[in-house]
Design a binder for these strands. Structure first.
Lengths: 202, 202
DNA sequence: GGCGGTATTGAAAAAGTGTCAATAAGGTGG
DNA sequence: CCACCTTATTGACACTTTTTCAATACCGCC
């Protein structure tokens, strides 16, 4: 039944295996619905080994979330050239495609974030900020978004909206195409920034 | 040290006490960071009593979130008269003020939502839908928002954005006034709906 | 082909959740 | 004013899950 021979991996391999498995398992369960027992069995290791690598359950969760976040950031980097709005377009497209393709990893990140502890929330916040900041950073020539407190706020909101929209679109596309979705998201940004200019500039 | 005399309340009083305490404690911790031990000690009761009232930890959490949700819905009902955009304005103002005043309760709701189980997520979703649907429901005369798949989606996103914006504004106002914030939120709605009309209508 | 470093294990302690028969507040009728 | 009786409340106990750590055995290396 159970392979009685223990297999010995390098720390890097083992770590990677456990993190991957964690991302997968935490996409559908919450942390306390996932017992170390299950995780260990699924990975074909003893419970002790997980503690050896991550110290405790919470730290493991943190590592899983961090991994998902890194992945997301890496895979949705906007291109370095092109007009500002086109770069946003490319970035959003990559984002949508990423969430569609890596639904599991993304859910692990998002679910872990709100439910988790302070440190996990921090990872999530940082990730979100990184993605939002791109809008300010990535425009050496054309200025889509002036940097004011109000626009900072709005871009933050736009990020939240993007996340929500993509997730609920995946759940129920309702006849809206991927390109429709991307168009809505991309055009929302200048529309929202416009609001801060008609209204208060702080 | 410990008051050796047990105090006997009516079930309603005790329930209310425990829920209030739960809202307060769960605003800063996640559910599994909150032990029944701590809760019981904080409430000045035995662990057993909590189980008597709520059955198990998860049901307790659910009740806490439901309480926070009910509170929110009740206190941010839009007025029944006035022009559509004015009603939205009043509703958003009430929402912002509510979150400022009941920061704890609101955090318990939001945090519980993403991290919690299916049933808790459902409470959150229902609450959010209720608030979003107001935009569609509450306009017997003027039509701000046509009801299409794309606008449904966008309103959903707007709701998420609103939530994010208010929370991050509270964390760092950065010179943006309450009225500025409200104005941004209110005007964002038509701005976003406008995007769906230039772009795809599905 | 044995040796040594270290990845891995398994059993046992610790922490937390849930159960339930026993206890005692405190309103009520005498 | 006091027993009494209903039922809110307790505390000790069973069970599940996490965490620790000394012992084990895999595998590259000489």
């Amino acid at each position: 039944m159970t392979a009685t021979t223990r297999t010995r991996l390098t720390p890097e391999q083992r770590r990677a295996q456990l993190l991957d498995l964690g991302v997968q398992l935490l996409a559908t369960r919450s942390l306390d619905e996932l017992s170390i027992d299950l995780l260990a069995e699924e990975a074909g290791i003893s419970r002790g080994l997980l503690y050896h690598y991550f110290g405790n359950k919470h730290a493991f969760h943190e590592a899983v979330v961090q991994r998902a976040a890194d992945d997301l950031i890496a895979q949705t980097a906007p291109p370095v050239d092109g007009a500002p709005l086109e770069r946003v377009h490319a970035s959003i497209t990559a984002y949508v495609d990423y969430v569609v393709a890596n639904h599991e990893g993304y859910l692990s990140l998002v679910k872990g974030a709100a439910g988790g502890s302070e440190s996990i929330r921090a990872i999530y916040e940082r990730t979100r900020s990184d993605m939002g900041d791109r809008v300010f950073r990535e425009h050496p020539e054309g200025d889509i978004v002036p940097d004011t407190p109000a626009t900072r706020l709005v871009v933050r909101g736009w990020t939240a909206m993007t996340e929500e929209l993509v997730l609920s679109w995946i759940a129920e596309p309702n006849g809206v195409s991927r390109d429709d979705l991307v168009a809505i998201l991309v055009e929302s940004l200048p529309a929202l920034v416009g609001v801060t200019q008609v209204a208060p500039e702080a």
